[in-house]
Design a protein around this nucleic acid. Sequence first.
DNA 1: TTGTAAGCGTTATCAA
DNA 2: TTGATAACGCTTACAA
Lengths: 361, 361
Amino acid sequence: MADTPAGRQREVTVTDVARLAGVGKATAARALGEYGHVSEEKRQLVLDAAERLGYRPNELARSMNTGRTQTLGVIVGDIENSYFGNATRGITDVARHSGYDVILLNTDENVTVEIEAVRVLTEKRVDAMIVSPASAYTFDHLQHLVDTNYPLVLLDRTIATLSAPAAVIDIVPAAKEATARLIALGHRRIAFLSALTTDGVSFSGFPLGVSSVAERISGMLAALEEADIQPDHDLVRFGAVDRPATARILLELLGRDAPPTALIASDSTVVRDVLAALKDFGLRIPADISLVSFDDTGWEEFTDPPLTVVSQPVHANGEEAARLALETLGVNVPGAGSSAGHSDRLTAHLVKRSSLGPPAT
Amino acid sequence: MADTPAGRQREVTVTDVARLAGVGKATAARALGEYGHVSEEKRQLVLDAAERLGYRPNELARSMNTGRTQTLGVIVGDIENSYFGNATRGITDVARHSGYDVILLNTDENVTVEIEAVRVLTEKRVDAMIVSPASAYTFDHLQHLVDTNYPLVLLDRTIATLSAPAAVIDIVPAAKEATARLIALGHRRIAFLSALTTDGVSFSGFPLGVSSVAERISGMLAALEEADIQPDHDLVRFGAVDRPATARILLELLGRDAPPTALIASDSTVVRDVLAALKDFGLRIPADISLVSFDDTGWEEFTDPPLTVVSQPVHANGEEAARLALETLGVNVPGAGSSAGHSDRLTAHLVKRSSLGPPAT
DNA sequence: TTGTAAGCGTTATCAA
DNA sequence: TTGATAACGCTTACAA
């Protein structure tokens, strides 16, 4: 008895089933694959035989013929990050509902890794890719997908010059509102911290490497401008990748002649590092400094103090990404165009809690 | 020019490359697939041709022949849950390092969904499955995998009567220590809350449907016993699946004649719901009630008050799961057996913060 | 409706 | 070292 690599028994094939059922191979295949016409009589014969043999269709072989793998490739920065965790769940939910599975790849926001990831998924012949691009500058690999008509959907971020559908949340208004509140409280020097390790491209010129971060800053600037406050570009900082780095940045920022009186953290990971640093410094929120964050992981409500955040419908955005991908594939997606449908773009909103106060005097 | 379903251009195949390179198909295949022997001269010819045509190997076809998909199937409860997010990241890291990809499926701890997930992965012919079993009672589908020699690794939970390798963290000692501390502080009535929706099987008899939860309880009981405290089985509660449910359970618990003076939350999701409920009830931690939780998501340090938790090396456990799976496949895993190797089982440890205090009088 | 045979793009076999 | 040619397990013609 032949064995597969792992020592498993030879797989039961359509041929085996056909033989046992006493019908032709094609008939068995039709019955098992549920296509074409098969008389009810023979169908039962085949199904019974399949049952008895424990037949399991080989999707690989099926895919070779149909040209479709029923698989979506998803490339995110880091699945440990709650943003991507939630978005991915949204994707898998919608995908699974339509009979699609998901192959997941992390890039750690490294474009080189992303390029490799795209290659792998291409070779695995996923039907479509959903990627959260690490850079808006280096994207030949994505452009190539578009050029070759390979279904691609961007997640969380857009690339201006790349014509691919994107599932993005409109975050500018909420970012602006958050900043406006700070301004209303009397803040004039508001710092922005992101984990981005930019290629040195400052935010003033736009566009920034990651649109979702650019939008956060854009919202902030809009509020500043509306209040006739000259933005201090030096208060926008990147590289808050971990605790030490964030502490270093904050130390430098707070040591300035005119230190910021309020902080905006670009995401939930950054805000945690900020909380750690402020704690170390012995600074109280919001008495000594105000703090706003993006994303709502479910914990911000219980921190000391509860954090005011710009909350995004992340899960829904993941669903939207999957929907966009499946629609490109011509798959009829259940909930599409309906309630949670496209027409109205998803928007973020400000959740007011207790981390905002007037600037320390 | 023929088109694939999505309207993409016909794929470039080995045959195309061979023709352009002016060599036989087999030779081209050998050069491209990097197997067998090919003269350096022809190899270059082939590679150049491939480059010019933009050839991309079809892993599906490759898999059909080799019988290996270079893909791991991962079945978890919910990727949004930080535990599974971290574990999955550990898995993907190790897998990718060895050239393997990961197909991810969520079950929401529903066995029926899990059964279906296993079926799907079987048909996709993943080389191995890593599953976090939803139940230790219903596992015919897993038993079947074992019976047919299909590589299977359990994640986070074991099933006593199923002989499959498992990547689990030893959590009993830390759970016991946490409870012992509560006891030392004077607590006698300690409640345990889990999100499990048990099949009605109480914890007293053992084993419980999910071993990782059973171990938490087991550790707690051990401490109780060591202190000669008669455990009150009614203080162990399941079904804390969301905020309202958790609030309901707590309300009932706290309304007892002899209410618990300390709470142990089974995981990070439960503890958040507990925090919400206690906040609603106006109860202060630890003045009014003590609270311990399992898992450390990175937020417990910043809650009000900072939470004492039993922290687990989740990411490392995910890595271990992948390692076990790959080793079963005969893949040489880089970091195996070394520092992070098997010999010493991963263990949880207690992180002391400020949510424990003497019982309210 | 059924069966035969060809094809999907690789790898594996076996002479040459 | 090469190159035909046969698998791999399925779907898709094309006949019967």
